[in-house]
């Protein structure tokens, strides 16, 4: 891992992009990394586009400014692709992971982009089949861990189980852990 990785999460209010940013950060902390995570606070409305961010570093993180050039982008809602430039500020070798049934090749063609590494995962379907609700945040974490190799997937699942069991009960926790595992296995690269 380079010294610091910055992740930008694109979602709509209610899809759990903030929770995803926090879960990834807190899982990384469990592996001895230094972390920051925060959402962008604008007018908050269910369904409105929103952003959240994760920083993971091998050294203490001192900066307290916006994330402008994220190496990794996760898009929780494919309908954002036509509305927002999710590639903004992303370096040419950056990683973009999108929740969609499409293949990376098909998505690349429809978006008309030639660089960046594109990954796709049917996160909403996985969430419906495992958690029973169309909240794609935890499967997106599984897909992101596979695409980036940032963390150990076992540690992420372990941490999610621990955090969700206390808060939402065993059934919801196991559903989310399965969602992470399935997305980790089903995410497609090029």
């Amino acid at each position: 891992m380079p010294e610091m990785i910055e992740v930008r999460w694109h979602g709509r209010g209610g899809q759990g992009a903030k929770t995803a940013a926090y879960l990834l950060a807190e899982s990384a902390m469990g592996e001895g990394k230094y972390i920051q995570a925060f959402p962008e606070y604008g007018p908050e409305r269910m369904g409105a586009p929103m952003l959240s961010f994760t920083r993971i570093s091998n050294r203490p993180i001192r900066i307290h400014c916006h994330v402008s050039n994220p190496k990794v982008v996760a898009v929780l809602d494919p309908t954002l692709l036509g509305a927002i430039n999710v590639f903004a500020g992303v370096p040419d070798d950056g990683i973009v992971i999108v929740n969609t049934e499409d293949s990376p090749e098909a998505l690349r063609r429809s978006l008309g982009v030639s660089d960046r590494r594109i990954f796709t995962v049917p996160a909403t379907r996985i969430a419906l089949e495992t958690v029973g609700r169309a909240i794609p945040n935890t499967p997106m974490i599984g897909a992101l861990v596979k695409a980036t190799g940032l963390l150990s997937i076992d540690k992420v699942m372990e941490y999610t189980r621990e955090r969700f069991t206390g808060r939402y009960g065993t059934r919801v926790a196991e559903g989310n852990v399965n969602a992470i595992r399935r997305a980790y296995e089903e995410v497609r690269g090029e």
Binding site: A25, E26, Q36, A37, F38, P60, H64
Partner: peptide, 12 residues
């Protein structure tokens, strides 16, 4: 301490 920048950001 700085609103949102610190108050609403998770850190170690």
């Amino acid at each position: 301490y700085d609103g949102f920048i610190i108050s609403h950001a998770v850190e170690c």
